[in-house]
Design a protein around this nucleic acid. Sequence first.
DNA 1: TTAATAACGAACAAATTGTTCTCTTTTATT
DNA 2: AATAAAAGAGAACAATTTGTTCGTTATTAA
Lengths: 187, 187
Amino acid sequence: MDRRQQKTRAAIFSAFSTLLADKSYSKITVQEIIDTANVGRTTFYAHFETKDALLKTLCEELFGHIIGSAMDCTHTHGLYSDKSAPESVFCHLLQHLQENDNNILGLLSCESSDLFLRYFKDSLNELIRTQFINQNRTTNPDIPQDFLINHISGSFVEMVLWWIKGHMKQTPEELDRYFRSVIEPVL
Amino acid sequence: MDRRQQKTRAAIFSAFSTLLADKSYSKITVQEIIDTANVGRTTFYAHFETKDALLKTLCEELFGHIIGSAMDCTHTHGLYSDKSAPESVFCHLLQHLQENDNNILGLLSCESSDLFLRYFKDSLNELIRTQFINQNRTTNPDIPQDFLINHISGSFVEMVLWWIKGHMKQTPEELDRYFRSVIEPVL
DNA sequence: TTAATAACGAACAAATTGTTCTCTTTTATT
DNA sequence: AATAAAAGAGAACAATTTGTTCGTTATTAA
């Protein structure tokens, strides 16, 4: 890809992230993104059709990366490494979040975090669903598997929201313990 | 209150709900609300400062009502009527939702459902928190109560999202059973 | 009946959006 | 180093949208 395109793209993403740290997605205008990124109006529209398209692309890059790494993790270890293991995929994910790659935390702490967490949850659902299918788990037959999968990914997302809201006082390991203590009993 | 004010207010709320059934909140313009409600531009702004203020007021009216009724329910019965009771507050809430007062379901099924469910969750959190305080529950001391409260209300909201997404195939009683089977083990 | 008040409608400036030009700069390639 | 292709800049644009300010008309409560 042309070096100019890369630079422009990076500038727009960076500007967008910066703005998101300050104000909610809905209040950010294309004009502001253009000004902050310091690119021409035409250039922006050459790269992204709308502000929504920009958001979508950003989410795809971000969560594609983080979930991809978790996928690798589960392929070798399963949802948990083993029954007594301190290292679950969830812990792995939380650590990834805390490392703050690509300022993902900035996005998840911003006013529009819901937005990102929905994308996150969709990816998580996939991750957990494949785990269930691979492991042929024997769950309570009275409870639909689909419900359980949604419960797990949903609870995880809600936990992350709670974590962020409380300024991330807990370590990923602590959170993982909390999470397992409310999830494992239902599996 | 002046009869004219009531009518205007109702017309705006109704127009807003109608529009929300068709398109996402962010894509609705004040102009459309004005046109649909068939009120003057000045009149709209005399009632609500912005579109956001309108949304907030609508949410307050809606969830104030539904949670208020659940509050009454828990004051007499507690979070569950008794250990083996088929009637939990959650069931009560779900039934309320299904009855579709004020077209609340229309709002919760719309593209902006997240928006409403956040309001819903905040109210729920209050409801559950007061329950915990009143009952002096003896929960696992290693897990913060705050985490548990968030887990419960969060899971409930995620379940409702799941329910709506799947076109509400289940009855409130079924859902209540699912929910209790994943929540009671952790209490 | 009357005084208060709510709604209406037109017009307004300012900001935003997405597009279409032309012109300049930067690439990759030969 | 020369060149053709691609990308960006910048100005101008019509169309919407927003929130406000008028003066006027209708409705309400007393």
